[in-house]
Simulated assay, not measured.
Amino acid sequence: MVTTAAAGRGRMGERPSTHLLELRADVVIKRYRSWEHRQQEREWSALELLDEHASGLAPTPVSARLTADPPEVVMSRLPGRPLDGPVSSEQAGAVAAAVVRLQESIPRRVLADLPPRAGHPVELLEQVRGWCSKASSAESHPVAAKALTAGTDWAHRPGLTELLHRTDRPVFGTGDGNLSNYLWDGSEVRLVDFEYSGRSDRAYELAEAIEHISAREDGGVDLAAAFEQVELEASEAARSRECRRLLALFWLLRILGTRPDRSPVLIRQAERLLSLL
Rank of each mutant, 00 (worst) to 15 (best):
R108I: 14
G198T: 04
A238C: 08
V221Y: 07
I255P: 04
T67S: 15
P260W: 07
D51R: 12
L266N: 06
E188W: 10
L183M: 08
A98R: 02
A234V: 05
A237W: 01
A226V: 10
D193H: 03
A224G: 14
L111A: 01
S55V: 11
Y32W: 07
W154M: 05
L256Y: 08
K146F: 14
A6R: 15
V143K: 08
L50V: 13
A225I: 04
E205P: 02
D69C: 08
D168R: 14
R268P: 10
E139C: 09
A58I: 09
S63P: 02
L253E: 02
L223M: 09
E22T: 11
Q127R: 05
S240G: 13
L23W: 09
D176K: 05
A118P: 12
G80N: 02
V27G: 14
D51L: 12
R254D: 10
L125A: 02
V87Q: 03
L274K: 03
E195T: 00
N178H: 06
V27E: 14
F194P: 11
N181A: 09
L206F: 01
A203L: 03
L253Y: 04
V2H: 14
R245T: 01
G177F: 14
K134W: 02
F250D: 00
E228S: 14
A6L: 15
R157M: 07
T161H: 00
P142W: 13
L246H: 00
V189N: 11
E242A: 02
S55T: 12
E208H: 13
G10Y: 15
E22Y: 15
T174E: 13
A207E: 04
I213H: 05
S200P: 12
E43A: 10
T4D: 15
G130C: 02
G198F: 08
V122F: 10
E217D: 12
G257Y: 07
A225Y: 07
L232M: 06
R117K: 12
S187P: 05
A150P: 03
L114F: 06
R202E: 02
R245Y: 01
N181K: 10
T161E: 01
A147K: 02
W35S: 15
L249P: 05
D218M: 03
G177W: 12
A118L: 06
G175W: 10
E139H: 10
D84H: 05
R245N: 00
R65H: 13
T167P: 03
L246N: 01
A118W: 00
R33H: 13
P158E: 09
S197Q: 04
R169N: 13
G173K: 07
S240W: 13
V27Q: 15
V27A: 15
R11A: 14
R15M: 11
K146R: 14
G219K: 02
L206C: 06
A92T: 07
R254A: 11
R216L: 11
A46L: 06
R117E: 11
R166E: 13
L160I: 06
D222G: 11
G177K: 11
L164I: 09
L276F: 09
R33T: 11
